[in-house]
Nucleic acid binder design. Sequence first.
DNA 1: GCATCCCGCCAAAGG
DNA 2: CCTTTGGCGGGATGC
Length: 384
Amino acid sequence: MASPCFLESEDRHQAYSRKQKSLGLLCSNFVSLYNRDDVESISLDDAAKQLGVERRRIYDIVNVMESVGVLTRKAKNRYSWIGFLGIPKALEDLKKEALRDLSQHPVDDQCLQVSEDEEANKSIDHDEGTREDKPSNAFHKESRSDNRKEKSLGQLTQNFVKLFLTSDADTVSLDEAARLLLGDCNNLTQMKTRVRRLYDIANVLSSMNLIEKTQQAVTKKPAFRWLGNRGKPDMSVTVAIPPSATQMKKRAFGSDITNLDFKRSRTVSYVDRKPDRLQMRTEDLKACNLAVQKQLQNSKGYVFGPFQPVGVTRDAGKEGNMDRAKVNDWESLASSFRPQYHNQALSDLFAHYLEAWKSWFSEVTQGKSSVQQPYYKSIVNKLS
DNA sequence: GCATCCCGCCAAAGG
DNA sequence: CCTTTGGCGGGATGC
């Protein structure tokens, strides 16, 4: 019975918060729900139910996650969990594919100008196809008439990622991406739609810490920075559902939503601990990255191990004024790596660290020194 | 006001 | 046919 709807719970019934329903958050919850060793099969309805969202949204996040190797579709309504350890492999494949595509098509252009310095490059149009779809650009799945697939979220995600994997620029502005991601922009509405998708994708990739939203140095235009290769703290993410477990009802978005039985986000550790202990979590990924890198350029044999350590202290000097360095250094803390597997207990713990880290990070980036272009471009550069 | 992007209609893919 | 997937874009929310 129950379902009194009115009066709801005792506590503050927050009007309606969009943020609580973002794809990013959903993704985080999804991860914390399935990121354990004993989970191999995931049912979409179950996920939708557990997370209290309509199924449509599950498709959204699952598609982008799959594109990055965290999941695999096994059958109808069934996915199997791979975990973050699957990311390196997926990225490797994507990169190879990307390079292959690029070599086939003459392509390319200088579309992706690095925000880096580059004052205004007024060399606008150069020729421009002017035709509506100009396949010439970057990667585009051939798939003949499969128009549907070409526009799938998954495909878009992969193209988006490829974009980072091929260029040595680690930051791409929003519209640059939109433009590159599929013919250019001639059709305004089409462009708008594309951007919407981009936001969707960006949200979930962000929640997995593969990218970060930022803005171009001078222009201040929104942009995304690739974090996937460096030992950013990734994996397990948070738990969300800030206020209380109410949130259900809320304009009937599923029918009866039910559950959503999150134990009140464990507030346990909102400790202000600095990310100095993040390394624990980072190891896995780090190890994987190293492995991948080795494979990619085994001949080269360089391993981007230790970074140039720079004063890590984040706000020591207060607006230390210089971009370069910092913000990316703390991760060097986690440079010591040792292969090991994670268990649920750990990842659970990690979730909390991450949360703390996130708040810290945003504080730093938004607060003062705006993160600028990190300087390590060497990491994954091409080797075509 | 514009940047974000949630929501859910409804049409393609299965089965 | 029904169900599962998932484009797509209106329009609400955030800032």
